[in-house]
Computed example of a mutant assay.
Amino acid sequence: MKKYILIVTVLISVTIQAQDLNSFFSKSDAFFKANVKNGRVAYSTIHKNQGDLNSLLELAKGISVSESDANNYQAFWINAYNLSVIKGIVDNYPTKSPLDNAGFFDKTTYSLGGKQITLNDIENKLLRAKFNDARFHFVLVCGAVGCPPLISKAYLPNTLEAQLEKQTKIALNGTFLKVNTKKKRVEGSEILKWYKGDFTMNGTKEFDFINKYRTEKIPSDYKLSYFTYNWSLNKQ
């Protein structure tokens, strides 16, 4: 009898967790659709009415995801990161840049997925360190103009692979690179510099990674340098 009760209890717990995770994805999707346009965030509007954002983060607090279930895990933490960046901006609003707020990335903690965690730890310990996927850099949005654009929808487990591919292509065919064919030079976002190891894993070269996603391939004899990151707030 006790064994039966235990099994039922576990099944109920798993069901509730699944429902909470699905609810988190659904409500995140609605939130991004309502507050993000062309990669810019309506911080002023969110600041005036923080109920939806706070409700989402409260829901995220109790969700448990396992890295063995990679799509749910990655989608949850990518959305949690992007929502927490918005929360950090809103808590300090008005502000001109996330860098104007001390400890924004490495000191301020958020209660998410049963953890007290910083933005840097989500990016570096929960995602990059576990999956070795450089495409994370094109979906984790730090609240600045120099970041990849924040999409007006949630990252969902069943569409995650396609979303990672799409956002990487958008960035590397767009604002992350400035190509000068006359001088045979390429200027890239400093993200490519700061995380060079991610783009050169397994002996690949930076242009190998870039050209995988570029419509117009960059010749191997071009020189790569980096332009200064724009930390201005990505507000509407």
Rank of each mutant, 00 (worst) to 15 (best):
82 N>F: 15
168 T>E: 01
183 K>R: 13
162 A>P: 00
107 K>H: 14
127 L>Y: 00
96 K>N: 14
107 K>T: 14
186 V>R: 02
98 P>L: 00
73 Y>N: 04
92 N>H: 13
48 K>H: 05
120 N>W: 09
114 G>I: 06
108 T>W: 02
139 V>N: 09
69 D>W: 13
158 N>F: 06
126 L>C: 02
168 T>V: 11
124 N>H: 15
87 K>N: 12
123 E>T: 07
97 S>P: 02
142 C>G: 06
66 S>P: 02
114 G>R: 08
191 I>V: 15
57 L>V: 11
66 S>Y: 07
65 V>D: 00
141 V>I: 14
67 E>H: 13
180 N>H: 15
169 K>I: 14
55 S>V: 11
162 A>Y: 07
178 K>H: 15
160 L>P: 14
52 D>E: 15
74 Q>K: 15
144 A>K: 04
52 D>Q: 14
119 L>P: 03
89 I>S: 07
75 A>H: 00
58 E>A: 15
105 F>D: 08
136 F>M: 11
111 S>K: 06
148 P>Q: 04
146 G>E: 13
172 L>S: 03
187 E>M: 14
171 A>D: 01
50 Q>R: 14
102 A>C: 05
108 T>F: 01
71 N>Q: 12
90 V>T: 13
143 G>Q: 00
177 L>W: 02
153 K>E: 14
184 K>A: 10
126 L>Q: 05
129 A>Y: 03
181 T>Y: 08
103 G>I: 12
169 K>S: 14
132 N>C: 07
136 F>L: 11
103 G>V: 12
65 V>A: 01
48 K>S: 14
127 L>T: 00
117 I>E: 01
119 L>D: 02
136 F>G: 07
59 L>M: 13
80 A>T: 08
112 L>W: 02
165 E>K: 15
164 L>A: 07
171 A>T: 03
187 E>T: 01
76 F>H: 06
170 I>K: 12
155 Y>P: 06
94 P>W: 14
179 V>L: 07
54 N>I: 13
85 V>Q: 09
150 L>E: 02
65 V>E: 02
140 L>E: 07
83 L>I: 15
109 T>C: 03
104 F>V: 08
61 K>V: 05
90 V>L: 03
80 A>V: 05
127 L>N: 04
82 N>A: 06
188 G>M: 04
114 G>Q: 05
133 D>Y: 10
106 D>Y: 05
136 F>Y: 12
131 F>K: 05
66 S>K: 13
56 L>G: 10
182 K>G: 12
109 T>M: 04
